[in-house]
Nucleic acid binder design. Structure first.
Length: 562
RNA sequence: GCGCCUGUAGCUCAGGGGAUAGAGCAACGGACUUCUAAUCCGUGGGCCGCAGGUUCGAUUCCUGCCAGGCGCGCCA
């Protein structure tokens, strides 16, 4: 499809240059050539490709849009269209619509089938290394619903980027060195004492979840003897480390069940041990990026676009999270990543200014770090929001969700909305095994493809009979619409990657499945017409490939029967 | 008070300067002797939150306002 687009673009550009050479258009339009847009129209009646360029050139050329359009089309006709273009028409206020000959259809089906699992991939990113950091939940409790959304969005984004020729990696930053870990240790210690029947006060800001008791119980079962032989400081430390490992393992398992695997779990503690944080704070001081006030070390982040300055080292000598986090982002860049994407929850949006300021101070160009803020998720049951209150212990974790809803449905539902929009997650719909459930609907389209091949096999039709089929006999509108949609897949993948918008690919998958179902109803695949049967089997094979590939990008399985 | 996000069909949401603003659900009416009816086809339904501005053209960009969500720590 790219080569078709390219040939039309060149032909358009050539026509415009000729018009300028012969003074039929003024030279100023040449400055606007780079912004030529060749889009795939929403409405099939507007052809396979269309450009609004005559409209956008109207101002510069000081001519009516339709007049410019007809000049361009005449010129293109003189030169002869590329082999794919059958005709070009001027429509509406001045759009130029290109209708392609059946050669593109034949080529598209062939391309899909020859590229197979690679269909949809491009080398656009030229191997640029991008690090996508997401979830990065504190290791003090179970993963929540927003973490689950982040996991689905982040993982899909990494897949989209890799499919678009980038070299993208995923990373989970483990905050295993901060104050929260010691609070966790204190909380577990208090529960442990409770189990031993000792009257011990529960920390004011401790974690009150039931799981803390579970951790204490588990520690007692496995290491009770050792712990009772320790003094209280050692026991506290032991329990802290035990809890940390327990919870990290738990988080890892939750994500594993969700089929989200990180390329790396990056430990804050290990980063600190390398001295990277000290080095950075010292360098910042030497460069004059910091000052001391009230016994603390402040970063002049407001000089670099943040709303106010931030404390790096507290008056008690400990770092705030800002220092190690900045050192972490520096480390990512030092490892050779040239673009960083952080996916954060809505409660962390203020964080962006500090990180951007830090990277700017270190001299990294604007745009090195992109922050994607996910909005909240509301779980809906029986049309009502599910109330969640941490205090009342009514809290639905990611594990709870996955126990109730299949992984495929959860992943799809979490990416189907814009990241910037609040997400209503309909639990009943996600569980439903009906046509209303978009995941089911898409998977069913794939299963239907497979079912057709099972039928063909049962009727003794050998793959060799249709693999080289002549598909130029496919002319039914449902067939053409399906091919059009398949043809745009690589474009859709790239756009979704560049816009950091997994929801686009979710929408594409739904539309593709819809077109397949319409085709299935309108066009009987296996019939007495042998040539048509072969051609349609080839088409179904292509559809099967695209459906499987798009499901794969979303991390959703492609069942062969349902 | 300040910052971020949102406001489009009864509901959930697409679209983000350009063609008649779309989809799914819900409502209503149709389609199976057939490769899975777990599907398909059709009908109705809209001051694109409000008011200005930029533009040949604004639902889209800008400003203000209104409404909702979330933040605003020497917590992460």
């Amino acid at each position: 499809m790219e080569h078709i687009r390219g040939s039309i673009m060149r032909s358009l550009e050539g026509a415009i240059r000729k018009l300028v050479d012969s003074n039929r258009l003024c030279a100023d339009v040449l400055d606007h050539l780079s912004s030529i847009a060749l889009e795939v129209p929403k409405d099939a009646r507007h052809g396979e490709f269309a450009t609004p360029m005559a409209l956008s050139l109207a101002g510069v050329a000081r001519k009516a849009p339709r007049e410019i359009a007809s000049l361009i089309v005449e010129e293109m006709e003189q030169e002869g269209f590329s082999s794919y273009v059958e005709r070009a028409e001027i429509a509406g206020p001045g759009f130029i619509n290109f209708h392609l000959s059946s050669k593109w259809l034949v080529d598209t089906i062939g391309l899909v089938r020859s590229r197979d699992e690679k269909y949809g991939c491009s080398d656009y990113g030229r191997g640029e290394r991008i690090l996508v950091e997401f979830v990065s939940a504190n290791p003090v409790g179970p993963l929540n619903i927003v973490n689950a959304r982040a996991a689905a969005v982040g993982d899909t984004l990494v897949r989209l980027l890799n499919a678009s020729g980038y070299s993208a990696a995923s990373e989970f930053y483990v905050n295993d060195a901060g104050r929260q870990v010691s609070v966790l240790g204190e909380s577990v210690y208090a529960r442990y004492m409770e189990l031993e029947g000792v009257d011990y006060p529960f920390p004011e800001d401790g974690y009150r979840g039931e799981y803390v008791k579970d951790v204490a119980r588990k520690a007692m079962e496995e290491h009770g003897d050792r712990i009772s032989a320790m003094d209280s400081d050692d026991a506290r430390h032991f329990l802290q480390e035990f809890a940390l490992n327990y919870i990290l393992d738990w988080q890892r398992r939750s994500l594993e069940a969700y089929e989200v695997r990180f390329d790396r779990w990056f430990s804050e503690r290990k980063l600190r041990q390398t001295g990277a944080v000290e080095d950075m704070v010292r360098e910042m001081a030497e460069a004059g990026y910091t000052y001391e006030k009230d016994g603390a070390v402040w970063f002049r982040s407001s000089d670099y676009g943040d709303d106010k300055d931030r404390v790096l080292v507290k008056s008690d000598g400990l770092y705030t999270y800002v220092a190690p986090d900045l050192a972490y982002h520096r480390d990512k860049l030092a490892r050779g990543f040239t673009k960083l994407i952080d996916i954060l929850g809505p409660d962390h949006h203020g964080y962006e200014g500090r990180m951007q300021a830090g990277l700017k101070a270190f001299g990294h160009p604007d745009g090195t770090l992109e922050v994607l803020i996910l909005q909240l998720v509301t779980l809906m049951r029986d049309g009502q929001p599910v109330k969640m209150s941490k205090r009342a212990g009514e809290f639905i974790t990611m594990d709870d969700l996955l126990e109730e809803v299949p992984k495929d449905a959860a992943r799809y539902f979490f990416i189907m909305r814009n990241t910037s929009s609040h997400l209503d997650f309909d639990l009943d719909l996600a569980k439903a095994q009906t046509t209303d459930n978009p995941v089911w609907y898409i998977q069913y389209a794939h299963a239907r493809c497979c079912s057709i091949f099972r039928q063909a096999e049962a009727e003794g039709i050998q793959p060799t009979e249709w693999e080289q089929a002549d598909v130029s006999c496919l002319v039914h509108p449902s067939e053409i619409d399906l091919v059009r949609k398949m043809a745009s897949f690589p474009d859709e993948v790239l756009t979704a990657a560049l816009e950091r918008a997994p929801s686009r690919i979710a929408k594409y998958a739904l539309e593709l499945a819809g077109l397949f179902h319409s085709f299935y109803t309108d066009c009987r695949v296996i019939s007495d017409d042998e040539a048509q049967t072969r051609a349609r089997l080839a088409l179904v094979d292509a559809a099967r490939i695209v459906l499987r590939n798009v499901l794969g990008i979303m991390g959703v399985s492609a069942p062969e029967r349902m």
